[in-house]
Design a protein around this nucleic acid. Sequence first.
RNA 1: GCCGGGGUAGCCAAGCGGACUACGGCGCCAGUCUUGAAAACUGGUGCUCCUCGGAGCGCAUGGGUUCGAAUCCCAUCCCCGGCGCCA
Length: 433
Amino acid sequence: MLDIRLIRDSYKAVRENLGRRHDPEKLALLDRLVEDDARWRELTGVVNDLRRRRNEISAEIARVMKEGGDALSLREEAGKIPRQIVDAETERDLYGGRVRDALMQLPNLLHESVPYGVDESDNEEIRSVGKPPAFDFEPKSHAEIAVGLGIMDLERAAKVSGSGFYYLKNELALLDYSIMRYAIDHLMGKGFVLVEPPYMLRRKPYEGVTDLGDFEDVMYKVEGEDLYLIATSEHAMGAMFMDEVLNAEGLPIRFCGVSPCFRKEIGTHGKYTKGLFRVHRFNKVEQFIFSLPEQSWGLHEELQRNCEELYQELGIYYRVVNVCTGDIGSIASKKYDVEIWMADGEFREVGSNSNCTDYQARRLNIRYRMKEGQAPVGFVHTLNNTALATSRTMVAILEQYQQEDGSVVVPEALRPYMNGIEVIKGALNPLIN
RNA sequence: GCCGGGGUAGCCAAGCGGACUACGGCGCCAGUCUUGAAAACUGGUGCUCCUCGGAGCGCAUGGGUUCGAAUCCCAUCCCCGGCGCCA
């Protein structure tokens, strides 16, 4: 959420910034917001005047009655006011509600270093690390490999749950847990606090962390309850300090969240959906930071280094892009995506790293104070980064570490977590195909 | 799930239809004093709007009763205790 006062004071600059997103609807929304806000302020004055009249007369009635007098005519006059107040309030609230709704729909302001562009083809490649594996055979997709090894079953998952689900077995299930433990150990070693959050959130905190459109396209709602399955632990961790004031001396707070992620993936037809790449549930280890405003840009780079270390130690070939103004989404002020190289020669996103500045914090009312006992001075900044999403990391490992015979070499960094398994051969469970 | 008790400012806490302009304390800020600090004393300490002098709002949240609600009524949420159920 943007600061209404910033919009009032710097309308032109805000409009120009939002204009870089190639979304004319948002600009129209902004213009309407400014008009509605002016009307709201006008009506607030009217309501205040009426309330002042009422308060004055009520005080007069109290005084007269205390002196044993009869306040009949005053009471009659006072009796007319509530109706007027209700009418004026009703109109004021109409505009107030419109202002609030518009504020909740306006995206974050973009950082100046975000490249200008229309869609993902305009994202700016910053660097690539590693190199494509030198196969002297025709490489297979991860789905072919995993099904071939008998360590993944998509058909039976589709039978009972529909497409986008999977059964993982033996080495691949173990690989999933190994990736999580590997990422957890890496981040805890850097002082991140490990958090296993609630897997469901109420609507109100959820509106604070995400785009409202996600309630239709992304999150699963629990029937008959005010609860939504989390699409990422980012959401549960961001909401954690809702309506609180944090002490500056305790910032930044670094969290390492681990959870399953549930996503409807509505509107993703036509995108790459094979195998484990785009699924309705996967596990993820997430970095999340609450910081002071002046710390967040430095921390954004720190998160990026941390997650790239994870890919580098795994020996995965990847590249980093600076996501452009047309592709960045509404919450982030700046976003880096990490994309892995896949066996068909394409790079695809495995994780992203966002500085959300004060956008989520203002929606969630998470402020900070300089010292215990002092008044809050502003909103914290929040940052989130996919350390490792297990599903897509497994895609990278299966495709980049595959061998001609269909087996897959386990990256050395994961072997301690894989009971020492060096090569996945799929021989552990011969009776189930 | 049932029965009690509760939710008041950053924290603790009083008030329980009209002088509430929400008692008091802690913390915090400023001033006095001091070489400096502490202590002591004095004042301040939430949000919104505008015509910067004010006004309005604020007692978990949302409704209602009333000329007037922190106070009475209803609903919801959360916390504590007891009972029930349970991995």
